[in-house]
Simulated assay, not measured.
Amino acid sequence: MIATEVFEPIDHDSVVEAVVEQIESMIVDGVLKDGARLPSERDLAEALGVSRPKLREALQVLEDRDLVTVRHGDGTYIAELTGRAMSPAMLALYARHGEAFFDYLEYRREQEAFATRLAAERATRTDRERLSQIRAELERSWAEEDADASLDADFRLHSAVADASHNTTLIHMMASVYDLTRRGIFYNRDLLKSMDGAGRKLLDQHLEIIDSILAADPGRGEQAARAHIDFVEESVRMGLEQQRREQRAQQRMKSVA
């Protein structure tokens, strides 16, 4: 649930309009993201410094604009606004045609290099603290061989870099792209980690991306992001080729049996 601290008390002639404007701005800026649950009506009204009837009016306006979804008995949520980059049918098609993965990587290489450059230029103190926390989690999960925690930190790192770019279009577009990654359509992390040393290299690359931003070095950041995606592409190609060789070897063995 979103913390009440992110909201500011309202001091505007039109209370309802001011509440709507604040929440809309937070959605545009990526503070309130798809699916985020807002605080309870009582807590949110208190945080904004408005009456509950006025808050209800504002939430109704936002709901009419399809920006929030009210689930009676559960709460109010930010609507799914960015949507998914592809329909379920298209995702299934891509999954059956693995070569599309490399188009996906090509796109990510350019966008993540751009995001990391901007993040190195624009990251605030809070952004840097967030990245430092993720850095510690990446190292801890590696040391403890916690695959789930490592994967979660991986996803959160890339989202944090996009957020630190402070480019709202980039933040929302990359959220849709990372949705594909989270669902495993274009990213076989197990394949990468099965290759000798790949897991350690992925960790080092993630740490380098973070360190370049903490050092406020845009050129280093862009280079680190490109090197990371280049490594993923090369490793996946090698892994797929090893799989094909093994498949052919098994077929030959069966043919002479």
Rank of each mutant, 00 (worst) to 15 (best):
D179H: 05
Y178A: 02
D196N: 12
L131A: 09
A147F: 13
S194M: 11
I134N: 05
D190R: 10
G184V: 05
Y187L: 10
R183Y: 09
A136F: 03
E144M: 08
G184C: 04
D146P: 00
S132T: 11
S165Y: 13
L138C: 03
M174P: 10
A164H: 04
D154Q: 01
R135Q: 09
N188T: 04
H158M: 12
D163M: 07
A164S: 09
R189S: 09
M174I: 14
D179L: 08
R140A: 08
H166C: 02
D148Y: 10
D179E: 13
D190W: 11
H158P: 09
R182V: 12
E139Q: 15
G197I: 06
L151I: 07
I185R: 06
K193Q: 05
R182G: 06
D146V: 03
A164Y: 11
S176T: 08
A175G: 11
S150T: 04
S159N: 07
G199P: 00
S165E: 11
A162G: 03
R189V: 10
R189Y: 14
A149I: 04
D163A: 14
A160K: 10
E145K: 11
Q133S: 11
A164I: 05
K193L: 15
T168H: 13
H166A: 00
A136H: 10
D146Q: 02
N167Q: 07
D148F: 03
L180C: 04
D163V: 07
L192A: 07
L180R: 08
S165A: 15
A147P: 02
Y187R: 03
R183W: 13
D148M: 10
H166W: 00
R183Q: 14
H158R: 08
R156G: 07
S132F: 01
S150E: 15
V177W: 13
V161K: 10
E137A: 13
N167R: 02
H166G: 00
A153T: 01
L157N: 05
D163Q: 08
R189I: 07
I134K: 04
M173P: 03
F186I: 10
T168Y: 15
S141Y: 02
R182H: 12
L157Y: 09
F186C: 08
F186Y: 13
T181W: 13
D152W: 07
L131C: 05
A162N: 11
V177K: 01
A162R: 06
L191G: 00
D152A: 14
D179V: 03
S132A: 13
S159L: 15
A198Y: 07
T181P: 05
L138N: 00
L131E: 03
L151H: 11
D190E: 15
L191Q: 01
A153F: 04
I171S: 04
M174V: 06
A162T: 11
R183M: 12
S159P: 02
I134Y: 06
E144Q: 08
L131K: 07
R183C: 01
D179S: 13
I185F: 15
R135A: 01
D190M: 01
L157M: 12
H166M: 01
L192E: 07
S141P: 06
F186R: 00
A147D: 11
R182S: 05
S165N: 09
L138D: 00
A136I: 00
R135S: 10
S194V: 06
G199R: 14
R135G: 06
L138V: 03
A162Y: 15
D179M: 09
N167E: 15
T168F: 15
F155A: 05
